[in-house]
């Protein structure tokens, strides 16, 4: 039987798990640094949404806007995070979809549980990571989150999933 130290998953596998853990730790500012400069965080309102096709989205943000979001999440006047949310990302079904010398596309299923002010919410998502190899390691050129209820009404969702 393998012990944990015997198992050495590929870098992309560790990246997706570490990224989820970073969000759960509310390391939002550090998380923004995990994107490429032209990266995109995208949560469309439909799984059929295509890149390059203009449409409304729950989130559609550049690293700069994500940094505004990250700093706001930690700002004392952000009422919707007073008290802050706690989250658990449950990540499964990681698959390497495509791979080239410059990067890869990873899909995963994620179940995110949020607890805030005594109220628990659940988000189920198909997540796509398009990762690029850079001198600083893997970076996200795209993180796409397709919620199972992307087209539904949602209460305030101020943090990235």
């Amino acid at each position: 039987m393998n012990t944990p130290t015997d198992w050495n998953p590929p870098d992309w596998y560790r990246f997706v798990l570490d990224e989820a853990a970073l969000l759960d730790a509310r390391g939002f500012e550090a998380w923004v640094g995990w994107f490429t400069p032209d990266g995109r965080y995208w949560m469309p309102t439909s799984e059929q949404a295509l890149e390059g096709e203009p449409a409304l989205a729950l989130f559609d943000e550049t690293p700069e806007v994500l940094l505004l979001r990250a700093q706001r999440l930690l700002h004392p006047m952000t009422h919707v995070q007073t008290p802050p949310s706690r989250t658990h990302h449950h990540v499964s079904a990681l698959r390497l979809q495509t791979s080239t010398d410059s990067g890869m596309v990873i899909s995963s299923m994620q179940w995110i549980v949020e607890q805030r002010a005594g109220v628990q919410r659940h988000f189920s998502a198909k997540v796509l990571h398009r990762l690029q190899r850079t001198p600083q390691g893997l970076k996200m050129a795209l993180k796409r989150v397709d919620l199972i209820d992307a087209d539904a009404a949602h209460r305030a969702l101020p943090f990235p999933l």
Partner: peptide, 24 residues
């Protein structure tokens, strides 16, 4: 139209940096 879409994404999404505090 892209300007209008971005306006609503910023002002009227559940994820909005503005509206989410109004909802709270």
């Amino acid at each position: 139209h892209a300007l209008s879409l971005r306006f609503l994404n910023t002002a009227s999404s559940p994820g909005s940096l503005v509206a989410s505090d109004d909802l709270e």
